[in-house]
Amino acid sequence: MKTIKVLGSGCAKCTKTAELIEKLAAELGVDVRVIKETDAQTIMTYGVMSTPAVVIDEQLIHSGSIPTQVDVSGWLQS
């Protein structure tokens, strides 16, 4: 099972990002756990400055915007 963290201080874009990932994961039948990480200190440890950012299995793979559907599907299937 993939653990996916969405980093961001709780703004609308971060919520949308988390929802998008959950929706696509359900569609593709991939088993994931999506966590919204809002703590500034934790976000800092990933070296992220523009949110929303996406971390999959402790690897930072995206930051600064809501990811596209194509991107998210790609991450989920890899």
């Binding site: 874009k13 400055m49 523009s50």
Partner: peptide
């Protein structure tokens, strides 16, 4: 350009 919701990560990014 950056969203004001990013100010804290930006602050910490610059600071570190």
């Amino acid at each position: 350009p950056f969203c004001s919701c990013s100010s804290i990560p930006v602050f910490l990014g610059f600071t570190s």
